[in-house]
Design a protein around this nucleic acid. Structure first.
Lengths: 138, 138
DNA sequence: ATCCTACAATGGACACTGTCTAAGTCAAAT
DNA sequence: ATTTGACTTAGACAGTGTCCATTGTAGGAT
């Protein structure tokens, strides 16, 4: 994710130890942490980082389009660093595990004009639910 | 929605003034209230109804399959009484207005086995986002 | 190398959403 | 009318997120 740090610096983002740590924590595939989980992991690397800073930084990353907010469970928002390849989510109904998925077709095209109520529809978010292999065998 | 009350009574649901009021508040099409909005409206009809009762009653209606929980915005859960006709949602990105929509096709079929990660996929939820006519003209 | 200053971080208070509990109340079966 | 167990209540509590005044600092200017 050093390319992320590069991109951000190129946009005039002021680099601080806290922001670097947050970006590092978010690195990887199939990462979908809540803000407090990000904070917990960040603290192990930078003990004095505050919760407010993590929230602020996550909010900025979302505004910059580098990270997506995901509302798959109905509790906390989760943050998904995989913002540059469009994808949807598959969530385990029991344990909450989340995988990124790429369905066929284009759901946007499946919403006829008669069902758009005059909206300018620009985006669609698909959440599949099921039971993951671990929970099924338990 | 008196048919709802009938159905519930038929299932041995004990009828109380509070439950009746909650069910009445939820009546209608394109209704997607948060729990506290339901409480606010219920209070106008039954001033002493408590927040806990509204939460309990909504939870029971969800368990009974009479009302759906919807997580379209990332704040509070919303409750959708339109549980008997499957549908998805179209949300205004500015004002949060929500409409029920019925897209073509079956998104479940669009998730190939190779993208299921061994999950037993049982459900899919589609949220379209855009700008509603009111917000577009403002 | 040092200084400045605007931007960032801190931490604690606050707000919102939702859950829980103990005690009181009431619908409905008898 | 009585009884009983389910329902309701009020308020405390927990988790998530926001805000603000203060303090600290990155990075450009000197």
């Amino acid at each position: 994710m050093s390319d992320l740090l590069e991109r951000l610096r190129g946009r005039g983002w002021r680099m601080t130890a806290q922001r670097r740590v947050v970006a590092e924590v978010l690195d990887g595939e199939h990462v979908h942490l809540t803000a407090d989980e990000v904070h917990a992991r960040a603290v192990t690397r930078l003990p004095e980082i505050s919760r407010a800073t993590v929230y602020n930084t996550l909010g900025e990353l979302v505004s910059l389009g580098e990270v997506l907010e995901v509302a798959t469970d109905k509790r906390a928002k989760r943050y998904d660093p995989n913002a540059h390849r469009p994808h949807h989510h598959l969530v385990c109904a029991r344990c909450g595990a989340i995988r990124d998925v790429h369905p066929n077709g284009n759901p946007l095209a499946d919403l006829p004009d008669s069902e758009r109520f005059g909206f300018a529809v620009s985006d669609v978010e698909v959440t599949y639910r099921g039971v993951c292999p671990d929970c099924a065998s338990a």
